[in-house]
């Protein structure tokens, strides 16, 4: 938990770096500073999704800590959902500034909306299985199936169809087209937002553990 508490130091530092240290981009000017928030939240939404998927796989293959793995997958999906909504909002603001409209159905925009829909679908499925004894297993399989779909959307479709979206960090050339100060700010921001996700995720897991303990105590009485 101590590691994740670093977010309280890093977050104000990153905000200062984004607005003071990093220079404005050549064409977009100060509007380009949204990059330091949009890319990290998009990164965290994918990380949260992968964590949910891994917890789901562990739930299915391992007999240990099944209840814990179930709520860990759910909590990561719930946190990821919030970060995905932030990605969509920051992305559409950036689209308005650079392309002139909030939404263009660009392959990259579509892939993040699909990720959001997957989270919504998973949370809906999970809530509608409330009374079912195999709730964890069924929702885990759904997350795994959805996780298989994501590479097709995130990596294949945007490379097959033309996209207006700027080159991603993982691009064809393997190079980052940013100045040194911008690059440092961006990577610091990615690390900070990952820590923020880790902090929130661990808090959520602690709450879930306490809820389960309280429930068990209630049944014991």
């Amino acid at each position: 938990m101590t590691l994740y508490r670093l977010v309280f130091i890093f977050m104000p530092a990153v905000i200062c770096m984004a607005f003071i240290l990093a220079p404005p981009a050549a064409i977009l000017g100060d509007a380009s500073r949204i990059l330091y928030f949009h890319v990290p939240v998009a990164w965290v939404s994918v990380v949260a999704f992968i964590v949910s998927g891994i917890q789901s796989i562990l739930f299915l293959v391992s007999e240990n800590k099944r209840k814990e793995r179930e709520f860990m997958a759910y909590n990561s999906a719930a946190a990821g959902m919030v970060f995905t909504i932030l990605t969509v909002i920051t992305g559409s603001i950036w689209a308005k500034l650079s392309w002139g409209s909030y939404w263009n159905w660009d392959p990259r925009e579509t892939s993040i909306v699909v990720l959001m829909l997957i989270y919504i679908a998973y949370l809906s499925l999970y809530s509608s299985l409330k009374e079912h004894p195999n709730r964890g297993g069924i929702s885990a399989v759904y997350l795994i199936i959805a996780m298989i779909t994501m590479p097709f959307l995130v990596f294949i479709i945007p490379r097959v169809y033309l996209s207006l979206h700027p080159d991603t960090i993982i691009n064809r050339e393997g190079k980052i087209h940013l100045e040194a100060a911008m690059r440092i700010t961006l990577f610091s921001s990615i690390v900070t937002f990952t820590l923020l996700y880790g902090y929130i995720y661990r808090l959520m897991n602690r709450i879930s553990r306490l809820e389960i303990k309280a429930e068990e105590k209630h049944y014991d009485i």
Binding site: S128, L129, H132, I145, T149
Partner: peptide, 26 residues
Amino acid sequence: ILGAMVAKADSRGSLFTVISFPVMIP
């Protein structure tokens, strides 16, 4: 596979469309 999941849940009809659509988009 999604039909098998939905069969175990409540409010099956609407849930099936909700959970199928994101996976079917590609």
